[in-house]
Design a protein around this nucleic acid. Structure first.
Lengths: 329, 329
DNA sequence: ACCATTTGTGTAACCGTATGCACACTGCAT
DNA sequence: ATGCAGTGTGCATACGGTTACACAAATGGT
């Protein structure tokens, strides 16, 4: 129990070879006799030997670790994508290190810590860190940042998301239903991704000569969606609320129904963003501006693979959102 | 851009000292002149030097990595606890490596991979791997397993959860409401945690001379809760469904309402388990057997700290569940 | 039988940091 | 002056692998 892990040198002695040969037995394409390899692998299995990944990383300059910078893993609006990515990484024998920004006060320090682990790649999902900071912290090592924020003058690969057409469709439908007074319930105050999303809707409204009648800021949570919707509906007369994500939209819908007695879609329209599975649950059936998460993670993996293959970057991929029609708008 | 990270030897040259002194400048309590340290830290900042954690780990025999073995990060029923734990780990400068079992076909190989990274601790949340396997794979190295499955004959610290009293209360209430025909909708078929949970309710029923009228198995997801509830309600006449977790309960509730036209709590009682935040959302308001997630993670952290302090184990902590009363039962 | 190539293995030098040991230097009491 | 404790630094080695290089043995062609 709890005995020290056996080293390649010890195994070498046991198998009657040198430690170099042990190493070769575990490297797929290296010159080694197949009989020797088989024998070594047998002895290794017997003694429970596996090469030490830390030592291997030090030598290789390749850790097979990937830093995932996220806001939180608890929020369903992000978790779905994270889950997909983790799955894809694992299939490639890459291990994800999660950095949760939302509940860490010094995010920069957290990123610096992760960067000392010589991660091979960095994927920044969070909008709570500035891309520039991420680039600065990770630029001394190989990793690229897969970001969603366009960062023109840097060698950062990114994925851009365009939801303007879908926002247009959604506004179209709501206006056709006779609604005129729109409110926007933002995710977080200083989030560039929220600004981007908001712009899609503001532009769509502008096309029809409309402007936002009210605005509020939350924190991407159900509670903030609920609370801000109550305040907003009390102080402004609106008949449509566009929310920064699906979870807030569910909160806003609940608030309208429970506190104000207003039902969707007749009294008020509620729109979410993300298109998470939960939005389609029967109890929610949210109208939402949705992104194909599989396509999105495909794009992330694509960028990671290009980086792995050392194809010169930066690369950029653009994805388009679609509308999911539910019964809330 | 993308230039190689500077090493302690190079920095040593730049600062006019030896690499040993560089190392000492970054180790809190080691004999070094404070003037030297300040100078080195200044030069280090200038060149963006930070000690390589991989090399440091190799030397220290301490990686500051923690493996978190979970079913999935996408499922809200687990994500809340994971989020809390990640937060606590980060505060201790420990980095979590996530291992998602649900979507990886060879979980043992995944754990073996992680074990080669010499993780300092292992926390097994998943019930998709056998504890014995986890112990076997990680026992050659220092880590303890914080598990929930009691594993008597092994030196594994564990957290036990007792929901029998709460299950008793819940059954009490439902029976008092006139319900008699209970069904149990399991999480996954071979999960020991599900068996444990089921037992609480089966025992509570037995006390009142009742038995389960029907059973079904899902996979902890909303969709499985929905689908299995439909099948179950079609083939058996039941007026109460106990579900393996909250998400399945929401699915079952939706199924009853949408497909069968039965409402909670009058036509049918629906009970969840976990007590996640979502269960309390206004649109759900689930009655559920709930665990205090903060207390739970406190316990996990407590075990990790004991292990860090090399206090001889194994240790065991028991937590008790409480009932959360909603409008579904 | 001879030389050229291929194949398999060992030796030794790394990868970047931490640390025991030795040594030089300071300050202070004898 | 001498001895001694304490302080600050460098040297060398260890951590556990990988890999360039060298070399012996096996192979193959003529």
């Amino acid at each position: 129990m709890n005995k020290r892990r056996i080293t390649s040198k010890e195994l070498a002695k046991l198998a009657g070879v040198s430690s170099a040969t042990i190493s070769r037995a575990f490297s797929p394409d290296s010159r080694i006799g197949s009989a020797t390899r088989d024998r070594i692998l047998a002895v290794a299995r017997e003694y429970g030997y596996q090469p030490n990944a830390i030592a291997r990383s030090l030598n290789n300059q390749r850790s097979r670790l990937v830093a995932l910078v996220v806001n939180a893993i608890g929020n369903p609006c992000e978790a779905e994508e994270q889950q997909l990515l983790v799955h894809r990484l694992q299939a490639r024998q890459l291990l994800p290190i999660i950095l949760c920004c939302a509940d860490h006060d010094d995010r920069l320090q957290l990123m610096r810590l992760a960067s000392t682990y010589q991660v091979d790649h960095v994927v920044v999902f969070s909008d709570m860190v500035s891309m520039q900071d991420a680039v600065d912290i990770f630029h001394t090592t190989k990793p690229i940042i897969v970001s969603f924020e366009p960062l023109e003058n840097e060698s950062v690969s990114s994925i851009r998301i365009d939801g303007s057409a879908a926002a247009d469709e959604i506004i179209d439908k709501i206006v056709a239903d006779g609604k005129k007074r729109f409110a926007y319930l933002s995710g977080t105050k200083s989030s560039w991704i929220d600004k981007l999303r908001r712009r899609w809707f503001v532009d769509a409204l502008a096309k029809r000569g409309l402007t936002l009648q009210a605005e509020a800021f939350g924190d991407y949570s159900y509670d903030s969606g609920f609370k801000e919707a109550v305040l907003l509906l009390h102080r402004a007369k609106v008949d449509a609320i566009i929310c920064g994500n699906d979870v807030m939209a569910i909160g806003a819908r609940d608030a309208a129904r429970r506190v104000l007695g207003k039902n969707t879609p007749d009294d008020i329209a509620v729109v979410g963003q993300d298109g998470i599975a939960m939005a389609a649950w029967d109890c929610n059936d949210l109208t939402t501006l949705s992104l194909d998460h599989v396509a999105f993670i495909d794009a992330v993996v694509e960028l990671i693979e290009r980086h792995d293959a050392e194809i010169e970057g930066p690369h950029s991929i653009t994805l388009t959102c679609t509308a999911r029609w539910g019964s809330t708008a």
